[in-house]
């Protein structure tokens, strides 16, 4: 059974590095008593795929994770029961085995960056981002970005924002990923809850 989970990684959990985070998920499944299918081979691992790894320090408001399970009764409730604070499963969608890999679905990523002080224009972003910038919106100290993903390559929002704040250490931006987007495509059916569509 193949499931795509939509979840949030908030607050302190943002600082858990990706590899540790992956292990944490394995553990959460074991704690919830849900058996993950394993990969074949000498060193079997649970079959689990993140749509797009989140940089350490970024929060994620609508992240996607693909898993293969032996059974899937009440997965959302069972997982949320054992989740540490700051992690929450928002929805689960069963998809057919022929469904595209979750990593292949990602065409764009949306971020919200908290700026050290308000900006008059986001021109500096445009120059730095080039083709990758699909949309940028400034609201006071908040910068919302929609960034293209092509061949699984994209550009980091902290580096972009850094272009407007020379001398500011880009690690210091507070960043949330607000959504994962796909282009309209007849192969994406059913549409997994939590996956947003580019219009």
């Amino acid at each position: 059974m193949r499931l795509i989970l939509s979840y949030a990684k908030l607050g302190p959990m943002a600082f858990v590095a990706h590899l540790d985070f992956q292990q944490l998920w394995w553990r959460i499944f074991r704690l919830a008593g849900i058996t993950l299918e394993m990969t074949q081979g000498y060193n079997p691992r649970p079959k689990m795929r993140f749509a797009s790894p989140l940089a350490t320090g970024f929060q994620g408001e609508g992240e996607l994770l693909e898993v293969f399970l032996e059974e899937g009764q009440n997965v959302v409730e069972r997982l949320n029961l054992v989740m540490p604070q700051g992690l929450k499963v928002l929805a689960a969608t069963q998809v057919p085995l022929a469904f595209p890999k979750v990593t292949a679905l990602v065409d764009a990523l949306a971020y919200r960056v908290k700026l050290p002080h308000p900006l008059d224009s986001h021109e500096c972003i445009g120059r730095e981002a080039g083709d990758y910038l699909l949309n940028a919106k400034l609201e006071g100290q908040e910068l919302n970005l929609l960034l293209k993903v092509e061949n699984q390559r994209t550009i980091r929002p902290d580096i972009l924002a850094g272009a407007c704040f020379p001398g500011f250490d880009a690690r210091g931006f507070l960043i949330s990923r607000t959504g994962i987007f796909a282009r309209q495509n007849e192969k994406i059916s059913p549409l997994p809850a939590g996956l947003l569509l580019l219009d």
Partner: peptide, 18 residues
């Protein structure tokens, strides 16, 4: 939150474990 982005392995300092 303002200092953790600048340190190695920030998860050492957040608590919040299972």
């Amino acid at each position: 939150q303002a200092i953790l982005p600048f340190v190695e392995k920030p998860a050492r300092y957040i608590g919040n474990e299972i």
